[in-house]
Write a protein that binds this DNA or RNA. Sequence first.
DNA 1: TAGTGGTCTAGACCACCCT
DNA 2: GGGTGGTCTAGACCACTAA
Lengths: 253, 253
Amino acid sequence: MLGKEANSDRVDIDGGRRGGLEQQLRQAIVAGDVVKDGRLLSERQLIARYSTTRITLREALFHLEIDGLIFRESRRGWFVSGPRLVYSPLHRSHFHRMATEQGRSAETILVEAEAAALPEELAALMRCEPGTRFWRIRRKRRIDGRLVLFVEHYLSAEIFPDILQHDLTRSLTTIYQDSYAITYGPAYFEINPVALRGYPAQHLGCSEGAYGLKITRVNQDQHGRIIDCDLEYWRHDAISVRVETDQQGSLAG
Amino acid sequence: MLGKEANSDRVDIDGGRRGGLEQQLRQAIVAGDVVKDGRLLSERQLIARYSTTRITLREALFHLEIDGLIFRESRRGWFVSGPRLVYSPLHRSHFHRMATEQGRSAETILVEAEAAALPEELAALMRCEPGTRFWRIRRKRRIDGRLVLFVEHYLSAEIFPDILQHDLTRSLTTIYQDSYAITYGPAYFEINPVALRGYPAQHLGCSEGAYGLKITRVNQDQHGRIIDCDLEYWRHDAISVRVETDQQGSLAG
DNA sequence: TAGTGGTCTAGACCACCCT
DNA sequence: GGGTGGTCTAGACCACTAA
């Protein structure tokens, strides 16, 4: 009964030309017509409403996903994205404070914490031998209830021998200060658009190959020792990076 | 004649399970089996070789595209991506030098240069009235022959009254220095994962809605005046952003 | 003009989630 | 167990590119 008689929906607006469905969907989502509690109607309901097919509908949804308007949780459905969290590498606010300062709610979930070898590709960045033992802490984080970030921390086992005895849902920044008298010094960041796969994808509940932003961060303490690094996997629509330079460029010629 | 008898290709390796085709394709691309001069075989040739359908093949290609292994030029075909260009906001090297320092070749193409009103959403960042007149310069840039960047510059018409008389395929940095005795001072960056659409997509030759990285940059001169801003639209697989802080975090509490 | 990618139809089966 | 998204088949027409 929802089927064919709704056919006029597409034809009069766009006649089936490129991206017509996408525009209709966009408007319907923004207007809240196809959204209930932040969640879109199921794909099959949308098919009926727009008299189209799975493939076509999903192509439109994928485009809106890249736009950051909606996002998927694997096999759970489509949801409307919230505003992006502003991330400032140069302001060393930790996750919870960053969120709170922006009026967002934050939550950290500990996934696992154990001894592990540093991945080969990090050995050069961490200036240590391949295979050196580190603490590996995996956590995931929510903003306003949504899982947006999976982080893998590698901490020097030498500098933080008993780190596992602390409450690892707290910010490491705070634990470092309180228990080790260590504060963060200079840091190095790499920011790459990537496809989320494996661990990060599974823990973020997104499909294999979803768009993400990977931020690799290597931290020194106040004495210039390299103390840890983070591999952060963000949902691509959940973050906006800001950098402000207050010095003149190092460029001479 | 290319069709059914090649059927064994898929079945024995993966039996049609999730992502099997994607993995096969990935290996074939890396090994160069389906690539000629950096270009993949056409979709229909690949369909025949892997005994699959357009839809299925294209889904696999899209995933490899997100991974940054291959990229599309709209209606032209699929190509193998090169290494990412390293982009360091804090080192104010301009595009050509950045590329040269990394052993890559760079090229700038002027698209248009004319007077234009500043877009509304930039008024606050540029600290000026909405509708203020600026020079708008649109350029696109190649790395190793591949179009990877579309830039829209907005230049203060007051500070650079006769900018259009210069060779706008040169770096603006150099023109500022040589003709206006202006050098870059502090800058502000915003880095967002976005979908490429409209102008940027058309000029980069990518499909509407392709995954990209948008970098918005507001520049001051050596006296602290806001002199211009850039809206940079990068192909997502062409860039890696690096930030190095050499000072202690501004975080007190 | 032949071939390309972009879009679309109309189904199907599966793995997984939720109730 | 019913419903969800994830994957897949087997075609089709169109807009555009390249020769």
